[in-house]
Design a binder for these strands. Structure first.
Lengths: 210, 210
DNA sequence: ACATGGATTATACACTTGTATAAACCACTC
DNA sequence: GAGTGGTTTATACAAGTGTATAATCCATGT
């Protein structure tokens, strides 16, 4: 083992630079030389360490998605009321957008639309995310005594996921109309469920949507 | 007026070809020569008719979004129960995906993330779409006697929009899990509202979400 | 019949693209 | 201190990029 430090440093510099460029100019604007400049390294090293630009972007994807899953898992695995998990997740929204996180995520999605191998990897990430969310929501719906025949867990999970992705998409398009009201509405709704649960009058809790 | 037919034909051929390429390879993969080949025209004509590739893509955006708005407006402006409008909209989903419609839409979104002028145009489209949906939903919620204090119209509109965009995004990523169940769930919920309305017992209709 | 002028073609330009490779570097071991 | 080998640099290459322009085509109006 000669000098793995230096190697890792350079590799990470490239991956970091790639994420930065995904945020600022998008995947379509990333070229080998532009990336090397951003990373403060020689562009010949891309071939040396990654073999090709495509392989580099795939490594960006791998690193980014593994981080994403780790966070989602940690958040929803906590043993706290679902309301609290939800608020934590929603609390991330603003700081996430400030950090450029969703831009990276959606740029990788856009990349995947035209690259089947990337698409497959993202599908796996999606599946893991869905699994985490399913577990958390199944537990929450049991706690809140929600009728899973009228409201199947998979359907609620799908709603939560499309909701989250839609929020990302709209915000990245610079659209924020109605989102505060929507988040407030959901919060009030969860508070009501939480209250109904702790009240103990479970026989028939009305007013969820009317 | 020399030969406007021919001119229009060529211009349309380029715009059509661009839409086709957005579906198959995405905006990042479109080059002037590849586009001209797809359009069956000389690539010099791009400069002749559009001035630049960027202007061409903007015209693609204009034509596509104006069609989109026309359809949305026509659909939600009809004087039928909201349930029917919703079913029509959801019925479009499958055939839309078969036609590549959402791929074009999302590719243009992805383009907009890194091009402010395009972003502005898409924001306008979004605003119009929101306006149409707001009118339809406000009417529906009044019909269904939904408490707009607990469930503000803007919040419900935002939910409907993020929902639709999330569906597009997931399907384009090849993900369909839970979507059928979700659409069924929403449909059942709307049916219940519709039934409650026609029954005439409006004093206190329970069971919306429990 | 012929000139007009928009439409089309072929070609040219300077530049960027991804990838490859030989040379140079340099911290380390023997 | 010479040699070793991973790391880095500079450079090369063919191909592709967007844009521009002169030449050509050809349906039209006179």
């Amino acid at each position: 083992m000669t000098r793995p430090m230096a190697q890792n440093d350079t590799v990470e510099a490239f991956l970091d630079a790639a994420e930065r460029l995904l945020i600022t100019i998008g995947y379509a604007g990333i070229s080998a030389r532009r990336l090397a400049e951003e990373a403060g390294a020689n562009h010949g090293l891309i071939h040396y360490y990654f073999g090709s630009m495509e392989q580099l972007l795939i490594q960006v994807l791998e690193r980014f998605t593994s981080r994403l899953i780790a966070r989602q898992t940690a958040m929803y695995a906590a043993d706290v009321p679902f309301l609290e998990k939800w608020r934590t997740a929603m609390g991330y929204l603003d700081q996430d957008f400030a950090s450029g996180y969703p831009k990276i995520w959606l740029e990788l999605q856009a990349l995947a639309w035209n690259h089947p191998e990337v698409q497959e990897r993202l599908a796996q990430v999606n599946a893991q995310w869905r699994a985490v969310l399913t577990e958390a929501l199944a537990k929450a719906m049991a706690d809140y005594r929600i009728d899973t025949e009228q409201f199947p867990v998979e359907a609620v999970v799908a709603l939560a996921m499309t909701f989250q992705e839609g929020i990302f998409l709209e915000r990245l398009g610079g659209i924020t109309e109605g989102q505060v009201e929507l988040l407030d509405m959901i919060d009030r709704w969860l508070v009501r469920l939480e209250r109904a649960k702790t009240d103990g009058r479970h026989e028939h809790h009305e007013g969820a949507l009317s």
